[in-house]
Design a binder for these strands. Structure first.
Lengths: 335, 335
DNA sequence: TCGTACTAATGAATCGTTTCAAGAGTTTGG
DNA sequence: CCAAACTCTTGAAACGATTCATTAGTACGA
């Protein structure tokens, strides 16, 4: 009941194992008749190549590791889908790891991928993981940073100009006349959060009389957004910001749920709201959400391309691609 | 620049390869001093176990394949996250494949997983794939069906009673007084669609005077829902259904976008709306969406458990777990 | 007829582990 | 002091593919 091996096929067809291997890998090195006989045996025995053995011999796998911060976030699920599609085109499989913003789990996946001798690792790092990634790279496993710029150009990377995204979002709030702006931040160790905040600050400084408050959310999830929103509705009306920029769409949707729950506050009349990522659900929110669109499909594809580049020319200099995000205006900031 | 092997470690430490292997796998079979020396060599050489070779020797991998219909659907991303977490606890990794409702891609992943000698495959099959899956099983790869009942109890499965979910959703619409009910169906080859429809039909038959119309959507996505919605708003008012039950939440959110776009129709006053899956975004929709909640986390965990069961006792009879869904009432069906 | 050139097929060596029977030392008990 | 019972360590044999130097066989030309 053991799976048939190449040796079984060879016996059955009355040829040597090398011949069976040739039928599989270099069919025209084998004479017509022999090939037919081998193929018959293969289908008769239900032989399926053992990829593990192939990989051992080849010295590397046909697998790419992808470590994301939160697969529940459509931003990342979209990237991973794109990466998977792109990898499949060149016959590679993507193994997905979800770090959940947790350094321990991240390290766990790095170790796992190293043991599995993956061809490369695409990673959206939790924080500054460069030492660990350098160790990976030193053992010949290529690394591409996703949604994170490469510190000192050590690795290839594909990222989005989050500072400029933060600027665009805040500028838009200011353009529609809002002056008491608040940024709903996630944990400050996420560079996505600090970059977007930096952009927001720049925009606010350009407009005299505009202020920027920072509200701290415990996480980058819908639930954390709801907590921030609940705190806001408790405030006296004159202390409320009139423009809210959230570090991502999940937060924004959570905030929106709280603000609209009691029907005492109106979006956008009382509070205008901007999110970040433009996930599919932003358009179908209670109030369709203005957001900063990130080209997730492109990000995923590019990550795979950068990896392929590294694999083809092993000592090519790492390359960094930076995409510009785009403002998508919807009802949550209508004038 | 080749990665260090166990042999390199053995040379460096001046012991036999078997001893190094014992240090790694059975530390207390090795004398204190030897063990220390080997561990030193390991860290000095930066040795990392080659999992590929281990797997070849062991005859199976520490990998589980998961094939889902649409990873962009939060229902499936939630299941896969749960499965991944559960698998990690027993030291296994999950490789994710996205079939996108496409038989070809599904087969591609089945083949890939078979070549990779995964321990088992969790699959949400596109249609009746039992022949192919039987072939897998015949080669010793365990199969667990996810979100799909097992035909003839051939495989273990974890599923949800979709007929009863469809019944609950429709009964609820009838309970709040709606009589011209429509079911927004996805492609009829998806059993999820036909089961939910069957439940809806049963509910409608119980109420004299109630009718059920079936609207066909091209897919189970937000976009497909918007197409159905666009067609609905074109209708004369008296031909409109007053209760809509959508085959999943993505469809429902799409329909909702169209219906609320022009502000001529009100949800729930003119049309009450029920979705299916209760994804996180249902609660933060334009009109918070009444939905049928499926215990995704439980589904993912259970799938892994059923697989573990099969692996531990290879000739245990396949087991089927069926969960009951739950109705979550929100504003989209408020009376 | 023989040597050359070619095509096919062979099978041992290899990849990096784990396993396990056998051997080498050491300790214990009589 | 020797046998028996330990504790460690050893190193060859798998696992299942690919590779490649050899060999076998055939065809051709001189």
């Amino acid at each position: 009941m053991r799976a048939a091996s190449i040796k079984d096929v060879a016996n059955h067809a009355g040829v040597a194992v090398g011949t069976v291997s040739n039928v599989l890998n270099y069919p025209d090195r084998v004479a017509e008749r022999t090939r037919a006989r081998v193929l018959d045996s293969i289908s008769e025995l239900g032989f399926v190549r053992n990829d593990v053995a192939r990989q051992l011999r080849a010295g590397h796998s046909r697998t790419i590791g992808l470590i994301v911060l939160d697969i529940g976030n459509p931003f990342f699920s979209s990237i991973s889908r794109a990466a998977e599609d792109a990898a499949a085109k060149s016959g590679n499989a993507v193994v997905l790891g979800n770090s959940g913003h947790n350094t321990g789990r991240e390290q766990h996946y790095i170790d796992l991928f190293e043991e599995q001798r993956v061809q490369g690792v695409l990673i959206s790092p939790v924080s500054d993981t460069s030492a660990r990634l350098a160790a990976l790279a030193a053992r010949g496993i290529k690394v591409v940073l996703v949604d994170s710029p490469s510190s000192e150009g050590q690795f290839s990377s594909v990222s989005i100009d989050d500072v400029s995204g933060g600027y665009m979002a805040t500028k838009h709030l200011l353009d529609i006349g809002r002056r008491r702006v608040a940024f709903v931040a996630g944990p400050q160790q996420f560079h996505q959060v600090t970059d977007r905040l930096a952009g927001a600050q720049r925009a606010v400084l350009e407009v005299p009389g505009a202020t920027l408050e920072v509200l701290q959310a415990s996480d980058l999830t819908v639930l954390a957004g709801r907590e921030v929103g609940d705190a806001l509705v408790e405030r006296e009306r004159e202390l409320l910001p009139d423009g809210l920029f959230c570090a991502n769409d999940l937060l924004a949707l959570g905030v929106m749920q709280s603000l609209t729950m009691l029907h005492t506050l109106r979006i956008p009349q009382d509070v205008a709201l901007v999110g970040y990522d433009d996930i599919d659900f932003a358009a179908s929110a209670v109030v369709p959400l203005t957001s900063i669109r990130q080209p997730t499909t492109l990000i995923g594809q590019t990550a795979i391309e950068l990896l392929a580049e590294q694999l083809e020319t092993p000592d090519a200099k790492p390359r960094s691609v930076v995409f510009k995000p785009e403002l998508i205006v919807r009802a949550s900031t209508a004038q």
